[in-house]
């Protein structure tokens, strides 16, 4: 079984979001880039499966659509334990464009894992789009994956509960909270080994983006918080009813 993990390269989650002066683009100055948190958990789970499946998982490959500066992120994925990285050398313009690029290298895997959303533009799209492009099955909101007798057993969240489901491979699993507990931190040995692991650079294909973001805005500034004294807490409930009108 071969596993492919789609890796988004995103600003660190504590980044204070800023835009350029005319608000047409994200201002990346001083930003720390990380593996998209869901993708990091997906990779962690893939490594666990590789280690515990008694040889059922032959290889874990990671792939990213991005320019040369994302290679640090891919090297980290290799340090965590991936066997090989693929970078498609293009700006990740939008979900459809990214999925079209990934479709050129994603055939032949039994399991592809994508995150439910990238922490920057929250597209919620690449995994599902890639599945449809490749004619693969997909399952979303995945919070657990086990291999049992060579079959995948999947936990997924549904609105109002959770389910255990089975789906045949090849499969795209779109993962979220729960897929692994904590992201794996690369050990010194992993970092050393990552240097000699293959990082293949692939040229992009032509694909027309169908959406683009023209401007950005910050959420409206909140009025100052109205403070109520601790021993007057009841007044706050009255304000919620009479002033805010939410009770």
């Amino acid at each position: 079984m071969k596993i492919l993990i789609l890796i988004g390269n995103v600003p660190d989650t504590t980044t204070k979001v800023k835009f350029n002066a005319d608000r047409t683009a994200f201002d990346a100055s001083g930003v720390q880039w990380i593996i998209n948190p869901w993708d990091e958990l997906a990779l962690t789970r893939a490594m666990e499966l590789k280690e515990t499946s008694g040889g059922a998982v032959e290889a874990v490959v990671v792939a990213n659509v991005g320019r040369a500066e994302t290679e640090a992120t891919l090297r980290k994925a290799l340090a965590i334990g991936a066997d090989k990285a693929i970078r498609i050398d293009a700006d990740p313009k939008e979900a459809g464009y990214v999925a079209s690029q990934l479709a050129t290298i994603a055939a032949g895997y039994d399991l592809i894992m994508a995150g439910i959303e990238a922490a920057d533009y929250n597209g919620n799209a690449v995994g599902g789009m890639l599945a449809e492009m490749l004619g693969m099955n997909s399952v979303s909101a995945v919070s657990g994956i086990q291999i049992e007798n060579g079959q995948l057993k999947i936990n997924r969240e549904i609105d109002g509960g959770s389910q255990v489901v089975g789906l045949p491979m090849p499969l795209v699993a779109i993962v979220q909270k729960g897929i692994a507990k904590e992201p794996r931190i690369p050990a010194m040995r992993g970092i050393m080994m990552a240097r000699s692991k293959p990082l293949e650079v692939v040229q992009p294909i032509d694909a027309a983006p169908m959406t683009n973001m023209v401007t950005f805005e910050m959420p409206p500034a909140k009025a100052a918080c109205k403070m109520i004294a601790e021993d007057q807490a009841k007044d706050l409930i009255h304000l919620l009813r009479d002033e805010a009108k939410v009770l």
Partner: peptide, 8 residues
Amino acid sequence: AFSHAVIH
């Protein structure tokens, strides 16, 4: 943040 996104 929010973006203004165009679908072509």
